[in-house]
Computed example of a mutant assay.
Amino acid sequence: MSRPAVATARPRRVLVVGPYPSAAGHVAARRAPADPVIDLHAVHVAVGGGPGAGRIVALSASHAARKRAERLHDDVTVWVVHPDPTPDQRARYLADGYELVDTGPPPDEMARRPRVPTGTAANAQAATKRHEHGISLPPRVADDGGA
């Protein structure tokens, strides 16, 4: 005798972007207790919070957690908090089936504001500049050349 097919729910996927406090607050107010939340800001803080390598590790860890959460067979919503994704990152989320929730100011207001570089490229550039000047090294190593 064969068993009837059991429908497995595919997790709903929601990407929340915008300023960190409002994006995290949006998720906290709406998520169910069992919903996984992958919060890039929280992961970044947990791995050291620095530019460059810290940001890259946070992005990699968040990506792995997100991909695993997407394979859950539970009836849950996978929430991803990514405060300022690049256009390419946002496009990949949308291609992966994420609904977009933007908690930031309206686009017309954002267009009037000057753009401040953020994200992985800006952080990697800052880390490279700091490394060239010995700033990213512990003070003792920077002062005595590592001896």
Rank of each mutant, 00 (worst) to 15 (best):
P4R: 12
A61Y: 01
V80N: 08
P21S: 03
A111N: 02
H133S: 12
V17K: 05
G49K: 01
R112M: 06
S62V: 02
L94M: 10
G50L: 04
A127M: 14
D35S: 06
V6M: 08
N123V: 00
H73M: 06
K67M: 13
Q125K: 12
A9Q: 11
A61S: 03
V16R: 03
M1V: 10
L72S: 15
T86A: 15
A124P: 01
V78H: 06
P83K: 09
A34P: 00
A7I: 12
Y98K: 03
E132F: 09
V101K: 05
A9F: 08
A124S: 12
A34R: 14
L100S: 04
G48I: 02
V47S: 01
T120P: 02
P19D: 14
I56T: 10
R66H: 00
G145W: 11
E132Y: 03
A42G: 00
R140D: 15
H26D: 07
V37Y: 03
R66V: 06
G18N: 04
P138M: 05
H82S: 05
G18C: 04
V16N: 05
G52D: 04
R10N: 04
D84W: 13
Q125I: 11
P85T: 09
P87A: 13
D143T: 12
D84T: 12
A32I: 00
R3T: 07
V16M: 09
H131N: 09
P105C: 00
R13V: 06
A46I: 00
P19C: 02
W79Q: 11
P105F: 03
A64R: 12
D108S: 07
V101T: 07
R90H: 15
D143C: 03
R3G: 04
T86C: 07
P139E: 11
V43M: 02
V16A: 06
A34I: 00
E99Q: 12
D35F: 05
P138T: 09
L137C: 05
A46S: 11
R112D: 06
V141Q: 14
R130L: 14
T77D: 09
A127Q: 15
R30F: 02
D143Q: 15
R12L: 07
A34D: 14
A127D: 14
A147K: 10
A24Y: 01
R13I: 10
V17W: 05
G104T: 04
R66N: 03
P19R: 12
D88I: 05
A122Y: 08
P87V: 11
A28L: 13
R130V: 01
A126V: 11
A95S: 13
P19S: 07
S136E: 14
S60H: 08
D143H: 12
K129A: 15
G134A: 10
L40H: 07
G49I: 01
D75I: 04
R71N: 08
P21H: 06
D143S: 14
Q125N: 09
A46Y: 01
R13W: 07
